[in-house]
């Protein structure tokens, strides 16, 4: 902090704080560590099996995504179903 900041008014957030927040987002909330490797592909495969057990969908029409935030993280599973007449119950 130099005397110049006195005249510049409100200081910008310290870059170290920005670094901490970004890291907290990707690391502290993430499955980065606990599973050792990325669990998403495996979860996608498992979920796909469950979906396919009930509905006959094109595997490429199932999308899984995650978004991590400091306050809220989401896991979104999007399954595009075929037209009603094509849905059949398996088993």
């Amino acid at each position: 902090m130099s005397w110049l900041t006195f005249f510049r008014g409100k200081a910008e957030p310290a870059s170290a704080d920005i670094a901490r927040d970004r890291l907290t987002m990707i690391v502290a909330t993430g499955g980065n560590r606990r599973n050792g490797d990325d669990f998403l592909p495996r979860m996608q495969k498992d979920l796909m099996e469950v979906v396919l057990r009930y509905v006959n969908v094109d595997p490429s029409k199932v999308k899984i995504s995650t978004e991590r935030g400091t306050d809220l993280s989401t896991l979104a599973i999007e399954v595009e179903l075929p037209p009603v007449k094509e849905i059949r119950r398996a088993g």
Binding site: R33, N35, G36
Partner: peptide
């Protein structure tokens, strides 16, 4: 530094699993 911290987190995961 950000990239080092993230990579450390990653390697900790590898240590725990591999």
């Amino acid at each position: 530094e950000v990239s080092s911290v993230r990579d450390s987190d990653r390697i900790l995961g590898v240590i725990q699993s591999k």
